[in-house]
Computed example of a mutant assay.
Amino acid sequence: MKQLILGVLLLFTLEAVMAQEKTTNLLPFETFEKKLLAAGPDPQILDARSGEEFIQNHVKGALNVSDEKQFKSIASKLRKEAPVFIYSIGNGRSAKLAAVLRALHFKEVYEFPGGLSKWIAQGKPVESTVGDGLSLAGFNEQITSEKLVLVDVGSRYCGGCKKLKPIVEKLAEENKDKLKLVNIEAYDNKQLTKALAVDALPTLILYKGKEAVWKKHGLSSEEEILTELNKHKI
Rank of each mutant, 00 (worst) to 15 (best):
P28W: 11
L26W: 03
E223M: 00
T24C: 02
F139L: 10
A16P: 06
Q142L: 15
H105W: 03
L27Q: 11
A103E: 09
V59Q: 05
A103F: 12
V198I: 15
K231E: 07
Q44H: 09
P43W: 12
L201I: 11
A39I: 08
F71G: 08
P43T: 10
G61T: 10
I143M: 03
L78H: 10
I74F: 09
A16K: 14
A62E: 06
V8H: 04
A186M: 13
N230F: 01
V100K: 11
L148T: 03
K147P: 10
N183R: 13
K180V: 06
P43E: 09
E224M: 00
K233S: 14
F85T: 10
E15T: 05
P202L: 01
E222M: 05
V168R: 00
C158F: 03
T24V: 14
A95C: 10
S73A: 14
S128D: 09
R79Y: 07
I184L: 14
I205W: 04
A121P: 09
C158L: 05
L26D: 15
S88D: 15
Q56W: 01
A200L: 06
A212H: 06
N91R: 07
K208V: 02
V59K: 04
A38K: 12
R49G: 06
S128N: 09
V17G: 15
A195F: 08
K2N: 12
K22F: 12
L36D: 07
G92L: 11
L150R: 00
N175T: 01
V65D: 08
K96A: 15
L148K: 13
G114D: 11
